[in-house]
Design a protein around this nucleic acid. Structure first.
Length: 441
RNA sequence: GCCCCGGUAGUCUAGCGGUCUAUGAUCUCGGUCUGUCGAGCCGAGUGCUCGGGUUCGAAUCCCGACCGGGGCGCCA
């Protein structure tokens, strides 16, 4: 273990058949041990793939004995000679002269990494560290990372400032009942369900364009494949707009760009998963709310103008749009009555609002719109919603001292990854998901 | 929170009142084998979620709790 005198461990990508004869040290997880009696193979797994260690009884029976004694999924280090060999994976194998167990794994494993049986999601999540040793599961998160990187790149390139608003707050963001309550030095506090009010307040500062990628918490006891209690929300707010179309263009470019970025830079990961997501063409369709209701009526669903679109309706529209070749689209101009208090009703038809949802494969990815920036109108609407204005003084104050017209969106990162990769459950797209029953790990 | 379905070895499953000393696979352990790469072959090991009840008898039927799967409501 006198590490300082020894060369660093070589990675799989640093070794090739042309290194024949070279002495290298490698480390990794023991994926499998194949004991053929006179010869033993250890399949060693690293981040990028697996390589083979070969032990021959006639060369060194002692080290062969050590190799056979190692438990699967232990972390080992080995030093030996590289031998080019067409029979071995990668075209080479290593014949170790030294083998050390850096961290043994107990047996049996709580979850097999290469076992020929499946495991339920619940079991996998209970043992997530082990589950993520499977390349196809790590690939999901490599892709998620790429998608986020592309989103950030787009936002920075378009003049947005990345911000962080508080996740602990003394008042509920939108006055809903779906807040987690906690004790804050004897006072009641809530986990933020949305950065909504804070990002709007920032519109009164001169930043003009802000975005935030951070957790949001919802205490709704939803038990579905598309809800978790802690999710990552990508929020943005833009000042000095004339119409929501001014930023819808940005959102669609950002989202479509993210899918394209994943396809371009995540080829190896998509290959592991056998996936090839479609890149929607720009601009994506804008379906008016009233037309969406029309589609539902065409499909025989009993809805009337003014109704909210329920899950079934959302799925029907998803299929209808899919038939026309559209996976990603906006639904615009919802009735004012079914949207939050901060939405701006349309000038010419106040029954409807400057609001939108972005839908991807029949699931809501984002919602947003132009906000009511006129103090009097905002207060009027808040009263109509039955909100106690005393609790919202901190929010309303900026509206009395010069608030530019503005709007923005909230976009669910976890759902985006779920739909882009056609995952059956949002929990697959989250490392350590939180839901109604799961708080550990 | 509501509706439907389910909970069997570390993992995934069959069984659905006695014939269950519970099926198969995977896994683990032991044996064998000098080119495996889903290694092979021989042998062994581990289990009916918990608590009540019905019955001569319960993995199996009933009730409750907890947990899981699907759907709904709501939403990102």
């Amino acid at each position: 273990m006198s590490g300082a005198q020894q060369p660093p461990y070589a990675r799989l990508k640093d070794i090739s058949p042309s290194d024949d004869g070279r002495i290298v040290s490698v480390a990794g997880w023991v994926e499998d041990i194949r004991n053929l009696g006179g010869v033993v193979f250890i399949i060693l797994r690293q981040r990028e793939g697996t390589l083979q260690l070969t032990f021959k009884k006639k060369d060194d029976p002692d080290i062969l004995g050590q190799a056979v004694a190692v438990n699967r999924e232990s972390v080992i280090g080995a030093t030996g000679r590289v031998v080019a060999n067409k029979q071995a994976r990668n075209g080479f194998e290593i014949l170790p002269a030294k083998l050390e167990v850096l961290s043994p794994a107990e047996a049996p494993l709580p979850l097999g990494v290469v076992d020929k049986v499946g495991a339920e999601l619940d079991t996998r999540l209970d043992n997530r560290f082990m589950d993520l040793r499977k390349p196809e599961h790590r690939a999901l998160f490599a892709i998620r990372s790429l998608a986020l990187r592309s989103i950030r790149d787009y936002m920075y390139a378009n003049g947005f400032v990345e911000v962080h608003t508080p996740k602990l707050a003394g008042a509920g963001a939108e006055g809903g009942a779906s807040l987690f309550e906690t004790d804050y030095f004897g006072k009641r506090a809530f986990l933020s369900q949305s950065p909504q009010l804070y990002k709007q307040m920032l519109m009164a500062t001169g930043f003009d364009r802000v975005f935030e990628i951070s957790p949001a918490f919802r205490a709704e006891p939803s038990d579905t494949v598309r809800h978790i209690t802690e999710f990552i929300s990508f929020d943005a707010e833009v000042a000095f707009i004339r119409h929501q179309e001014d930023f819808l263009k940005m959102l669609e470019e950002c989202v479509v760009g993210s899918i394209a970025y994943v396809k371009e830079h995540g080829k190896e990961h998509l290959e592991i998963l056998g996936l090839d997501p479609k890149v929607p063409s720009l601009p994506i369709p804008r379906l008016l709310y009233v037309d969406a209701i029309g589609i539902l009526q065409e499909y025989g669903k009993k809805v009337k103008e003014g109704d909210d679109i329920d899950t079934e309706g959302e799925k029907i529209i998803g299929r209808a749009m899919q038939e026309k070749g559209h996976e990603l689209y906006y639904i615009r101009d919802y009735p004012s009555a079914i949207k939050a208090f901060y939405v701006m009703p349309k000038e010419d038809d106040p029954e409807y609002s400057n609001s939108f949802d972005m839908e991807y494969k029949g699931m809501e990815m984002a919602s947003g719109g132009q906000r009511e920036h006129r103090y009097d109108k905002l207060v009027e609407r808040m009263k109509a919603f039955g909100l106690d204005l005393v609790n919202f003084d901190f929010y309303l104050k900026p509206f009395r001292f010069g608030m530019p017209p503005h709007g923005g969106w909230g976009f669910g990162i976890d759902r985006f990854v779920q739909k882009m990769l056609d995952l059956p459950n949002i929990r697959e797209a989250v490392l350590f998901p939180r839901d109604r029953n799961r708080l550990i790990p």
